[in-house]
Design a protein around this nucleic acid. Structure first.
Lengths: 231, 231
DNA sequence: GATCGGAGTTGAACATGTTCAATAACACTT
DNA sequence: AAGTGTTATTGAACATGTTCAACTCCGATC
């Protein structure tokens, strides 16, 4: 059931504090120096453990990134909770949620670039499409399902089924843009978010037009077939 | 004018043969063992030079990947030349060109995954959006410009201006899908190519509909603003 | 042909992610 | 309290990308 516990057989011990110390040190150092400039040795030193101990809790440096994902995801969830219970307009919900993503990640803007390097590697443990990150991925997609279902927007059912997945992809695209964004206060990214969320919601409402129905069906069938291919 | 010669001050010498030997060895070994499993030492040995010599011609392992790009791009150009001069239907041109991409890259399917790791890193020399790969990127985009302009399709002029860039992005998306594709003969990717090229051409023809004109304008304005942001 | 500057070449040295066998600490049973 | 097996911890050893100072070789200039 719970893949996390299967992968991490760390039965409750006081040793959990070592794990927390290692992750905390990694988080600090990533922020201070960037991902690549942070050595496993430096992490171990700041955490007050030995180099080998770090590898006892995290099989690789990339697994620290995975934990980092989960960390920011939980921050994100906490931030958007009020919005999701208050706002019913789909465009506003989507805009707020995506804005919250980049606001939450902002402290790690400098790091994100080099992290994405590991992320894109299909062989990597932290690849968003891979099995290791499946649990987290499903949580994020579920969040977008709630963004849609909790709104008052009328979405064709076939589109509604795939929309959470598509929005998750959209979020990754925004994040990738954000990584390159060097504008003051990340205003460019915010602008792009406003424009694209608006566009997305508009296209959703157009999806029911007779002229578009055929293309919509075909596009969604394609999305479905691609999505199921990744088990 | 020519950035390549500015970056590579290797005045003509017989030493060019070393460069070729190193790249050839790298190409072979990448294919045989994959990118990460290929060590710079192994490349040097097979090329018959010393480790240090490899770094004289290629500042990093990633720069070998850049050369690899250029190599496959030129193969690709040669393959699609007949098609582009013969076929006038946009869908057929696009389908043929994209299919040729994955056919050309097929020998490197196993390698591509780990290569993409470096590629996605914004700080990397081989990042497609970065300055180092600009020359090659412009060539590829120019090729897609010819795919469109050489067809008999009627494309709204504002869309025509951005279409080559969008098709370049589309190609990268297909390549990323292809990397994950483990199906027999890469049939899944071929299927996705057929479906998506068809869909793209259909959407282009729909772009003139009055209901869509507003969204099209806004989407293209967005694309333009994003594209110019990267200088 | 002697000289000289720069390209070509070399291998040792370095930094760092990762592995591993050995040891210590702990929890739980008897 | 003794025993036992699992977890925690350690640091040395390894592999590999990269750097660098030294050296060689070629080609041009006088």
């Amino acid at each position: 059931m719970n893949t996390a516990s299967a992968v991490e057989p760390h039965r409750n011990k006081r040793g959990e504090s070592s794990r927390a110390a290692i992750f905390g040190a990694a988080l600090d150092l990533f922020q201070e120096r960037g991902y690549e400039a942070t050595t496993m040795r430096a992490i171990a030193v700041r955490a007050g453990v030995s180099l080998g101990s770090s590898y006892h809790y995290f099989p690789s440096k990339e697994h620290l990134v995975l934990e980092f994902y989960r960390h920011t995801h939980e921050l994100h969830l906490a931030v958007i909770a009020p919005l999701l219970s208050r706002e019913k307009d789909l465009a506003a919900r989507l805009r707020g949620v995506i804005r919250a993503v980049i606001v939450t990640c902002e402290p790690f803007h400098g790091v994100a670039g080099s992290i994405f390097s590991s992320v894109a590697n299909p062989a990597s443990a932290v690849n968003p499409f891979g099995p290791t990150s499946r649990a987290l991925r499903d949580e994020v997609i579920a969040m977008y399902a709630e963004v849609v279902s909790g709104s008052d927007a009328k979405v064709p059912s076939d589109l509604a089924a795939e929309l959470p997945l598509l929005l998750w992809l959209y979020q990754m695209g925004i994040l990738y843009f954000w990584i390159f964004d060097r504008s003051q206060g990340r205003l460019r990214t915010l602008e792009v978010i406003d424009q694209t969320t608006d566009l997305i919601v508009r296209l959703i409402s157009l999806a029911n037009l007779p002229v578009l129905r055929g293309s919509r069906r075909r596009a969604l069938a394609l999305v479905r077939s691609i999505a199921e291919g990744s088990h």
